[in-house]
Amino acid sequence: GKANSQLPHLHTLQISSLLPASVCSHSTGSSKTQSTLKVFHRHGPCSKHTRQNPTTKPLLADLLSYDQSRAKSIQARLNFNSNTDNIKTTTLNKNKFIDRKANLPVQPGISLGSGNYLVTIGLGTPTKTLSLIFDTGSDLTWTQCEPCARSCYTQKDPIFNPASSSSYSNISCSSSQCSQLTSATGNDPACSSTTCVYGIQYGDQSFSKGFFSKDKLTISPTDVFPGFLFGCGQDNQGLFGRTSGLLGLGRDPLSVVSQTAAKYGRYFSYCLPSTSSSTGHLTFGKSSAGNAKFTPFASSQGASFYFIEITSIYIGGRQLSISETIFKNSGTIIDSGTVITRLPPTAYSTMSAAFKQLMKKYPSAPAYSILDTCFDFSGYTSVSIPTVTFEFGGGVKVDLHPNGILVAIGKTQACLAFAGNGDDTD
């Protein structure tokens, strides 16, 4: 406490607070409306996926490896999108997603192994409950569907059966909705008889293919969307855990944000909990924004992603000497599915050095996966760490929560929860 009063730009925290508890505690957040869904971590005690399968929890090293795959695939996809010649080449190959091998390297997608936050929605009539990964970095919502003509992985909820839904219908190949799949998935649709067939492949080679369909989406008893367009997956493989699929919150016309625009006005918000043992929320539509400060979206390079502009970083209250150009040259997106923030290497190295300087009382620990600024807290039950503040376009300053600064590697080690890209131009 004494140290804290002398140096106000420190957080003093119990090391145990960086680790999840063994039991779930539910959020008491204020932003609750009819259209609020509970957000929970796929591998924490609030998830029914974990409660009955505690041994399926992956190692942190695995999650960070998946995270690197996602970060690389986002960068590959943005590079791809900037090359129109490549897009033409892709769209000419009408049958490519039927041939899995032909589809692999053509359109980089988003790795999903690290898409760890789930929400529960309802689909069909009568409504079936589905737990979906929520992802601001992709657009198409899909779920596994009976009869799983080729392959379904094991999921926790019963697999959606369109034959049991009175409001279900397929989309025809000739419809305008079918052609929208090209931008939403990066792949041209195909046809099975007259039914539109989608295929979406992610950067880690996870994929879902099946019928492009519509049915009733239920966010809450009062928020129901007939004719919601989604993928009814008949061939699904990859790092989806035991979830039922994915909820796409990107900017494309097929995303849930766009499809519900008439009611929610393309407005949504979420809060991710401090640890995987507590819950957060995802709210559609305007609710009390509370104390939110707004930064403008930056001009977008891709159809899906939400670009913002970082202008400065503060460590321990002190602004780092990083040229704004470093951030402008690369651009920045905000993503609910990437775990660790990636910075241009020049910015990251400056941040790491400043953080280490203010943490010099703690011994260093070896690097862990993509994290290379690590500390040994053996013998400590509480530690003092520098505050970290990001400044975004429009002068918006955001103080990070301590659990957004350090990630615990175990009970005695933690690492700065940031990583550098390979190159300032990434």
Partner: peptide, 30 residues
């Protein structure tokens, strides 16, 4: 491209006003 990831978003109220072209951050969202 840089990526502002979900670890750094923890406990923040992250508000997407897509129609309004802006993103909000609020402290203590959950």
């Amino acid at each position: 491209v840089g990526i502002f990831g979900n670890t750094q978003q923890k406990t923040l109220e992250v508000v997407y006003d897509v129609a309004g072209g802006k993103l909000g951050f609020g402290a203590g969202g959950c």
